[in-house]
Simulated scan of single mutants.
Amino acid sequence: MRAILFILGLVFQMAAAAQSFDQSHTAFSDVLSEHVTVYNDGLKSVVNYHELAQNRQSLDSYLASLSAVEPGQYESWTHEQQLAFLINAYNGFTLQLIIDNIDKFESGEAESIRDLGGLFSSPWEKSFFTLLGEKRTLDWVEHEKIRGDFDEPRIHAALVCAAVSCPKLRAGAFTGMNLEAQLENQMVTFLSDRDKNGIDDKGIYLSKIFDWYREDFDGLRDYLTRYGDAIADTVTEQQKLKQNSNIRYTDYNWQLNSVRNR
């Protein structure tokens, strides 16, 4: 009986811990809605980093709530809640990295996130935040946790590395409850942005993201066919997509996705 009561106690504790975290990520949605501008019929967005740096308390508070989550608490969540948490963490701590270095961008010392790396390391390899009990890097969140634990190629349209050629940053947080619809919308939106993806007289042109992470799409051409209405504007282009058309990858614009570069 004692063993049963002990187990029940643990279950109740885990349930209480899971409920103590705001799975709606409302605080992050508030930050994004205030500082992210979506334009071009919803296909693109920019961030007002200057204003965010001047009014960063809400972002810092939200990120602190992410850092406070214990591994056991995270493990008690649903698959969707875990992935939404990690995507928001990646995007949120990327925002922090930029505003922590806002003086470099405003002075012209830095023009992109890549300028924030060290002599022998990239900015994605910096351990500058705590997540799930340890100091972490953005690379750890993306490659070890998200890509390592989830078979979900649409995350490449959801993780935003603060560059013009990245997918758009949503003006709201990802949530476990809405994750499926949000990820699908992100991929459709990304493929519909003709500055990044499309079909022309030379064939199919794609963001370098599809080249860098080609293995995640398990048959890239077949994967793109699923999104024919997004990447192709005409029946002729749809036919090119289904045929063995040439695929080329566009140059990546690493300039900061700020209001200055809109």
Rank of each mutant, 00 (worst) to 15 (best):
H156S: 13
F190E: 06
A173Q: 07
G198M: 11
G203F: 08
D222Q: 12
Y205P: 14
C166A: 04
D195V: 08
F210A: 04
Q186D: 15
D216A: 12
E142S: 05
W212I: 08
S192T: 02
N197Q: 14
V160H: 00
S127I: 04
P153K: 04
R154Y: 02
L206Y: 10
Q182N: 02
G176T: 12
L179R: 03
F128H: 15
L191W: 11
I146F: 09
A157L: 04
A163T: 06
Y213D: 05
K145D: 06
K168N: 08
I155M: 12
A173M: 02
I209A: 08
N197M: 01
S192I: 05
L191V: 05
K202I: 11
F174E: 09
L159F: 05
L131G: 01
M177T: 13
F174C: 07
L220G: 01
L183I: 05
G198F: 02
F150P: 02
R147A: 10
D151Q: 14
K196I: 00
D222G: 13
E144G: 01
F174Y: 15
D151P: 05
V164L: 13
A163H: 13
L138I: 13
N178C: 06
A173H: 08
E215S: 15
D200A: 11
L169D: 04
G176H: 12
A181R: 15
G148M: 03
L183S: 05
G198N: 04
G133F: 10
K135M: 05
G198R: 03
W212E: 04
S207L: 00
L220F: 11
N178K: 15
F217G: 02
D139Y: 14
E134G: 00
I204M: 09
A163G: 04
A158K: 04
A181E: 12
P167I: 04
K135I: 03
N185G: 09
L206G: 03
L220I: 12
E184C: 03
K202S: 11
G172F: 10
Y213S: 04
E180K: 15
R194G: 08
F129H: 01
V164I: 15
I155R: 09
A162E: 02
E215T: 14
L179P: 11
F190T: 02
R170G: 11
F128W: 13
L159V: 10
P167N: 04
T189W: 07
L183G: 01
A158R: 10
M177L: 12
V160M: 00
I155F: 02
C161A: 09
R214N: 14
C166G: 02
F129D: 12
D218V: 10
H156A: 09
F190M: 03
G172L: 14
C161W: 10
C166R: 00
E134F: 09
S165R: 05
T137W: 03
T189C: 07
G133I: 01
M177G: 14
G148Y: 06
L138N: 00
Q186P: 07
D195G: 13
F210R: 07
K208A: 11
R221Y: 06
F190A: 01
I146Q: 08
L169V: 03
N197H: 06
A171I: 08
G176C: 05
A157G: 03
A181S: 14
S207D: 11
G176R: 11
R221T: 08
E134R: 14
S127C: 02
E184P: 01
D139Q: 06
K168M: 13
F150N: 10
I209H: 00
D211Q: 15
T130M: 10
K145Q: 08
